[in-house]
Nucleic acid binder design. Structure first.
Lengths: 231, 231
DNA sequence: AAAGAATGTTACAGACCGGTCACACCTGGG
DNA sequence: CCCAGGTGTGACCGGTCTGTAACATTCTTT
C-alpha cells in the first residue's frame, strides 16, 4: 500500500528505515512500535524478534545514521582530495542542507534531548559519535593549516548544532538561515591566521606574539566573500 | 516532606514551579501530570482546575521561562548601563552558565525538539520568543556599533543554541566547554570592524569599501584576549 | 457565624503503550 | 517430500497516561 513495487524482502531493513522516518517525524516517544511495524509492512512480533526492545531499535537507527554520516565524510574526501579547506567548505554547505531540509535537525541531538534519562543505552553512543565528529572536524582544520584548529572545530560544531536546533525553535527564517554566511566568515577569520598562505602582504608591528588572526582578507576558495556577501 | 517550612499557599505557583523542574529533568513527555501534582504538594484535580490540559501547563511554564529571561536582559542593562559591549560580554558569560548548569540546556529548544507535532500550542510561543531573543541581541549589537550587527546576532544565537544542545549530545567536555572563548572571539572579529572606537591607530589602504573587519586587535572590555587566551 | 470559593480525595473512564504468547503460515533447501 | 526457520496474526497482560465525576474538606471573605 504505502510502497508499491514490492518492498525489499528483508523486514529488518524496512523496520529501521521506517523507524528512522517516524522517530524523526514524531519523536521517539511520539510514536509506538505498533505503528512502526505496521508502516514497515510487518507486525510488532517480528519487530521484537529482531530488536529486543524499543530502545534497541532506537540505537540501531542511530547506528545507521552514524554510518550515513561517515559515508558523507568519505564523500568530502573523495570530492576534494588533498584540499582540506575545500572539504571544510563542503562541510558547511552540507551542514546548511542538514539544518534546512525537513526541519527536524539532527537525529542524534534530538534523541539526546528527548531521552533525558542519563542511563539510556543510546546516550553513550550519541556522545561517542559526537566526539568522533568533532575530532574529525578538528583533524580537517588542522590539515587545512589553521592555527587554532581545535577552537575552530568547536566553533563550527556549535554553529551546526545550533543551526539544526534553531531551525526547530526559531523557524526557517531564523538565525539558521544565515548558517553558511556565518560558518564561512568564522572559517575565514581563523584561516587568515594560519601559516601564511600565498603572500603575507605586509607585516605590521614586526610580528610580536601575533596571536590574533585577522579576518578574511582572502581565504583560498570562496571564503573571502564570507562577510561581504552576507546580508 | 519535600519542602519543609510551609510552601507558599498558592498551589498554582507550586505546580508550575514543580512542572518546570520535572519537565526539565525528565522531558515533557517523560513525566505525568500525576507525578507533577504530587511533587507540588497537591493533586491532579486542582492541577486541571488551573490548567485545562497538560499542554496548557506546558505553555504556562514556558511563559514563565520567558519572563525570567526577560528579567535577565534587564539585569544586563542595569549592570552595564550605556555600555552595550559590556552587556554583550555579560550575555556570553550568562550563556556559558546556561550551557553548563544542570546540563539540560534551553527549555524552549528542548520543548521544540520534543513536541514535534507542528500544531502544538507551545510551538508558536517558542518561535515568537526565539525571534524576540534574536532581535534583542541584534539591537544590542547595533548599539555596540558593530557593522554586521544582524549577522553577529545570528552567529551568537547559533553558538548559544548549539552550546546548550551540544552539552546534552556531546557532554560537558565537548565543544560547549569552549563557548566563552568562541563567543568572545567571534564578537571581537565583528567588533573590530565597527565605527572606529578609541583611536583608529592607522588607516591601511585608504579605507575603500572596508567590508571585511579585522579580528580582535582590541575590543573595549576584555574582548581582546579572546583568541589568545583560549585553549 | 455563615456563605462561597478554592482545594483535597477517591475512584474511574478510555486510550495507548511496550512486550509476550500461542499458533498458523509460508518458503526454501536437504 | 518434509523439515526448519523466518514470518504473519490476533489476542492478551500489566502498566501508565490524560482527563473527568462526585463528594468531602478547608480557607477566605463578608
Amino acid at each position: 500500500m504505502e510502497d508499491c513495487a514490492a518492498a525489499p524482502p528483508k523486514p529488518r531493513e524496512r523496520i529501521v528505515s521506517t523507524a528512522r522516518d517516524l522517530f524523526r517525524k514524531h519523536g521517539i516517544r511520539g510514536i509506538g512500535v505498533d505503528a512502526i511495524a505496521e508502516l514497515a509492512g510487518t507486525n510488532k512480533m517480528t519487530l521484537y524478534r529482531h530488536f529486543g526492545s524499543k530502545d534497541d531499535l532506537v540505537v540501531a537507527c542511530l547506528r545507521e545514521v552514524a554510518r550515513e554520516v561517515e559515508a558523507m565524510w568519505d564523500g568530502f574526501d573523495a570530492a576534494h582530495p588533498d584540499d582540506p579547506l575545500a572539504q571544510l567548505h563542503a562541510w558547511v554547505r552540507c551542514g546548511a542542507e542538514c539544518a534546512g531540509g525537513d526541519g527536524r535537525g539532527c537525529d542524534m541531538a534530538n534523541a539526546a534531548v528527548e531521552l533525558a534519562e542519563s542511563d539510556h543505552p543510546a546516550r553513550g553512543f550519541i556522545e561517542q559519535f559526537k566526539s568522533a565528529q568533532r575530532d574529525r572536524l578538528a583533524r580537517l582544520c588542522r590539515k587545512a593549516g589553521i592555527a587554532k584548529a581545535d577552537l575552530l572545530a568547536d566553533a563550527l560544531s556549535l554553529l551546526l548544532e545550533g543551526a539544526r536546533v534553531s531551525r526547530q525553535s526559531a523557524g526557517v527564517e531564523g538565525p539558521c538561515a544565515r548558517f553558511i554566511a556565518i560558518g564561512e566568515a568564522v572559517i575565514a577569520a581563523f584561516a587568515s591566521g594560519a601559516k601564511g598562505r600565498k603572500q603575507p602582504r605586509y607585516r605590521r608591528r614586526a610580528a610580536g606574539p601575533a596571536k590574533v588572526p585577522r579576518l578574511a582578507a582572502r581565504a583560498s576558495s570562496r571564503g573571502g566573500a564570507a562577510l561581504k556577501g552576507a546580508r
